[in-house]
Design a protein around this nucleic acid. Structure first.
Length: 191
DNA sequence: GCGACAG
DNA sequence: ATCTTGTCGC
């Protein structure tokens, strides 16, 4: 069982809602989903994203009934200036295997990526491989995959591809994104 | 010093 | 991240 975790924000009330969606790669069905809400999240500062989102994300993850085989995070893992992105922080906090799957580059360089689904390029930061740029759908912008903890990069990429049968963003993350927004909307409506 | 900069 | 439905096109 793989889980995606993401958060949605409301600047007016200084609220943040996180959602963790557990997904079964075999039948591609949602197994369970949970949310957590917090107030006054830290300001967003590039490179310090974990300070803003990791705590609520982990709160939502802790509600899971089963230990995930993988946690997919919306952001970077080792592909970070200090080699310690949010996915690393969440791995450290939970002890669970995590990977970062970001929609844009924070740091590092890479060669051009082929146009077909499955095409990849190594993401390097001062001479070291810190992640992989992966094309999850043909002719669609690639995503940036990096290890958070307790997992190898190759395995992470294979899982990312299995989790993207139709869209650019891995299914667990897409669903977590939607569910987080819904959770936030519900809180705003009931208060 | 200057520009770049996950969400 | 967020403002935001339907619509045009491969």
């Amino acid at each position: 069982m793989w889980v995606g975790v993401d958060a949605a924000y409301d600047s007016v009330h200084a609220l943040v809602a996180a959602a963790a969606v557990a997904w079964n790669p075999d039948d591609r069905l949602v197994v369970e989903r949970h949310t957590a809400v917090a107030i006054q999240p830290a300001a967003y500062v590039p490179g310090r994203f974990a300070e803003r989102e990791a705590a609520v994300a982990v709160a939502a993850l802790r509600a899971l009934h089963a230990r995930p085989a993988l946690v997919m995070c919306d952001g970077h893992g080792r592909a970070h200036p200090q080699r310690w992105g949010m996915a690393c922080e969440i791995a450290s906090l939970t002890g669970w295997p995590t990977i970062g799957c970001a929609k844009s580059l924070l740091c590092g360089r890479h060669d051009p990526v082929g146009p077909a689904r499955g095409d990849c390029a190594e993401l390097k930061l001062d001479g070291k491989v810190v992640g992989r740029v992966v094309r999850t759908q043909t002719n669609v912008r690639p995503v940036y995959v990096s290890v958070g903890g307790f997992l190898e990069l190759d395995a992470a990429v294979q899982m990312i591809l299995r989790a993207t049968p139709c869209f650019r963003i891995p299914e667990p993350l897409r669903l977590a994104h939607q569910f987080a927004r819904l959770a936030l909307a519900r809180v705003l409506a009931s208060s």
